[in-house]
Nucleic acid binder design. Structure first.
Lengths: 232, 232
DNA sequence: TAATACATTAACATTTCGTTAAGAAATTTT
DNA sequence: AAAATTTCTTAACGAAATGTTAATGTATTA
């Protein structure tokens, strides 16, 4: 029975890190401890984790930067931040990156445990089936979302910016179907409001410009709902 | 921005409740405020919410008891608890019931907002239950209510507005049967009065115009009752 | 036939979208 | 670390889509 969930703990204070690791281990989690953001990211890439607990204040690479890097690779894994008391800004930045929760040090270990359980219980591994496809052919294009390259059959290639890339990928994954605005906004911009919505429109316009080399492809708007990439 | 999420807020302090409700409303949530657990449970059962924020300390029926009742009916809806001081026991009880998060009063409103967004953005909790049917064939038409397209077999497609779309969907779901006026009004216009009724008439007229490409289809009026989509 | 309910068109108000451009912010190059 | 480049956000504004209401006429019922 390997039901033990594994946790990546990144904490620069060795004493505190050790104690916390032991506490979590006693409570049947498999814990990997890294002492800074750089080591944290290496460990993250080397194995699979169910949850990350990141101290925000760390030398070399802080927890927020690490979180951004992790999010680029994995947009689903739950993140919990540890922050010194009253650093509201850090907390909000954390949520903006896509944190699931935060705790202000010093915190109660039982509560951390409850949070971990709560977070892990509600996510029975959502993205299991979603094997990460990153190359697509549609219309006259070949699109590699890992290299962020959109190549036209008989034309030059185009490098895509991160946002262009994510948006196009979501459109392609929903080819001929609706990509709801809110879903794209919450996934790519991590917030759905007037401004992010305007920003998304700008990116739709950019993508339309790229795609117009194949006139059979269209990104059409469904008013009030979202966009649909289709071929006529 | 449409598709506002709705929140049930249960808080016995009327001043605080009012302020919090207003704050959330400004931030585009639809908030229903209840002043105690009893009223909270009634409201919960009367309509659909995306999230509940429950004060723990309340007269008559406290937040934890209310949460247990809610969980009996709905084991997925996110719950956030508000607790007065650091009443660790309450917090742990809350998580045991299946809370998603908690905040200790006084708390920062921006952080509450970030938490709400974080919880609501990991969406797949909500729509797991019923896969919505959204494609219909009737007469010479194919109707896709997700893309809001009404396509004629040998003719062009028609884009439908949200209200046209909802109304046609209700008619189709009641094909050959009566669609009562107030049912449609309450569902689509969220209110049944003289003006919404006139507006519905306008939309019935629009739909009739679309459907007249297939002369066998009719939307007939049942005087004083409603409408009936039928094929003769 | 009077009262009520329904049908249709058109004018208007509101919301959402598309696009360009300016300038922040981040990243890369020098 | 300064400069150049790329990426992203925000503003502005016109265009398009949507929704409401008024006005007027027609059908149904009592």
């Amino acid at each position: 029975m390997k039901s033990n969930k594994s946790i990546l703990l990144v904490e620069d204070d060795p004493n505190f890190g050790r104690i916390l690791k032991d506490y979590l281990t006693i409570n049947n989690y498999e814990v990997s401890l890294a002492v800074n953001g750089i080591e944290g990211f290496e460990k993250f890439n080397r194995s699979e984790f169910d949850l990350c607990i990141l101290d925000i204040m760390m030398p070399f690479k802080d927890g927020l930067t690490l979180a951004r890097e992790i999010r680029e690779v994995n947009d689903a894994i739950p993140l919990i931040f540890l922050t010194a008391k009253n650093l509201k800004d850090d907390v909000l930045k954390g949520y903006k990156i896509g944190a699931d929760d935060y705790l202000t040090k010093p915190f109660d270990s039982e509560i951390l445990l409850a949070k971990i359980k709560s977070i892990l219980n509600r996510k029975p591994n959502v993205n299991v089936e979603e094997k990460d496809v990153f190359e697509f052919d549609f219309g006259d294009f070949n699109f590699n979302s890992k290299l962020r390259i959109l190549a036209h059959n008989k034309g030059e290639s185009h490098k895509l910016s991160p946002k262009e890339n994510q948006l196009l990928k979501m459109l392609v994954l929903n080819f001929d179907d609706l990509l709801p605005r809110d879903i794209a906004l919450n996934k790519i911009w991590r917030d759905a409001n007037y401004f992010t919505s305007r920003s998304m429109d700008v990116y739709i316009a950019k993508l339309r410009k790229y795609l117009e080399k194949d006139t059979s492809l269209k990104i059409i708007n469904v008013h009030g709902e979202g966009f649909r990439l289709m071929q006529e």
